[in-house]
Simulated assay, not measured.
Amino acid sequence: MKGAKLSVRALKTRQGPDIEVYAFFLPGDQVTEVADISRLRRGEGNLEGFQRKEIRAHVSEIAEFLSQGPVLFPNAIILALSPQVRFESARGPAAERGDVRSGVLHIPIRAEGQRAAWIVDGQQRSLALSKAKQAQLQVPVVAFISDEVETQRAQFILVNKAKPLSSRLIDELLPAMSIALPKSLKPRQVPSALCAALADHPESPFVGLIKRESQSDGAKGVVTDSGLTRAIAANLRPAGALGAYDLEGGTDAAFQALCIYWSAVRDAFPDAWGLSSEDSRLMHSAGIQAMGALMDPIWTRADASADPAAEVAAALDRIAPRCRWTSGDWEGLGWAWDDIQATSKHVKGLSEHLLKLDRELSRPTR
């Protein structure tokens, strides 16, 4: 390996205090051959490195996504390069455009722990690329010259301190995506699509009531889409109200079931429906999730009846007098109506309370 090097066509410029910066492409399996991962650790009392531990599940998920076949993967890897790399400028007037020059970058290939490059951002992606079946995928790389750990740490922090995409934004975008998705996103696509349909379809009881990331600041909405999406996702579990639906053929049947159920909720609680979550805990994320949990037993019974809408309405009418969405105290819980918050304790407690009421009140009378 002595004297071995990797040569790639690259563009060179300068940034900051005269630091050389390069942009080029590398086959995915070669990133970890030329660059080390500087792990964060303590050595003799001193802090060394800066990278987090490998997240195996995340690496495996990316590798699985990459192995599906031809994929778009434009996410750039950021490397810090040792001053020992060498840039050979191309000749001729076309090789330079303003402050950018083209040429060939020569990176020494060395054993692990002695390499001439370090991964600043993209270690999980780099590891996944080395394990994927499509290891020859050309990935973009941006690199800067610096063998100072302090500079590398500063860039690592700056790159990773940005706030990640909100879960709500991702959920709103998912229904419009038809490309192959990472494994962790696929289960979220159908609940997100159903939430979007409930937000927009004129037959939906939620039309005009759902808060979404894409809305302008002045737009009205009282139900947070994330709470409703979570409720629908729970309904889609195998034992849930919608778990037996064949979604491969579309979501129309599931959408109709949701419309029937939530329209009945609206009609059972007319004084609480459509208010802000501050004035009505039915419209609060906790209330939406609890009523979503109640849909499982009610719709399971109703779906097998001759008149599902009437069955749902009857079940909710039995429960309605015991509910305290806008005033009073919940008997059996010891909570005032406005004590309810979107915590796991309150969502679980309220859900279990409503399910218990349904079991007790739906028993046949002798």
Results as ranks from 00 to 15, higher is better:
I119W: 01
V139Y: 08
A80Y: 03
G208S: 06
F73T: 03
N160P: 04
Q136D: 13
A342H: 11
G122S: 07
S166M: 09
L294I: 05
A180N: 11
S167C: 03
D358G: 02
N160Y: 01
I232H: 06
T251Q: 11
M291I: 06
R101V: 14
P308A: 08
R281G: 02
G28H: 14
A309V: 00
L194D: 02
T343R: 13
A23L: 07
P140H: 03
F269V: 00
D296F: 04
R52D: 15
S126K: 08
A234G: 10
G218P: 09
R97T: 11
W273R: 04
T343D: 11
V59L: 07
Q84W: 00
S285G: 15
V142I: 13
S226L: 15
A4M: 11
S204G: 09
C323V: 09
W273K: 04
H284N: 12
L282S: 04
R125D: 06
L350F: 12
L247Y: 09
L355Q: 06
W330L: 08
A23G: 11
I319S: 01
P187Y: 00
S351D: 13
A117Q: 02
E88M: 14
D329L: 11
K220L: 12
L361F: 13
F65R: 00
D271E: 12
H353V: 01
E64K: 02
R318M: 13
T229I: 06
L165Y: 05
Q84V: 06
S102W: 02
Q155R: 08
P321H: 08
G113C: 08
V223Y: 09
A76D: 09
L105W: 01
S277M: 05
G3P: 04
L194W: 02
L357A: 07
P308S: 07
M1H: 03
A304L: 10
D267P: 09
R14W: 10
F269K: 03
S362E: 10
R86E: 14
D252M: 12
F25E: 12
A342T: 14
S60H: 07
E203H: 10
I55C: 05
R101Y: 03
L81F: 14
E352D: 13
E148A: 05
S38I: 02
K161N: 11
G334D: 11
E248K: 09
L357H: 03
G122V: 03
Q123D: 13
G208A: 05
I62V: 12
I107E: 04
E64Q: 05
C259F: 07
F269M: 01
M283Q: 08
R91H: 10
I232G: 01
S344N: 09
M177P: 07
Q189I: 00
E213F: 00
D296T: 06
A132Q: 03
D246F: 01
F255N: 01
S184Y: 02
G332W: 04
P191C: 10
A302E: 10
S285V: 00
Q136E: 13
G274C: 04
P140S: 13
V141I: 09
A197H: 11
D252Q: 14
R91Y: 07
L209G: 00
R237C: 05
L181Y: 06
S89E: 12
A116T: 07
K183N: 10
K163Q: 15
K12Y: 01
D303C: 10
K163R: 15
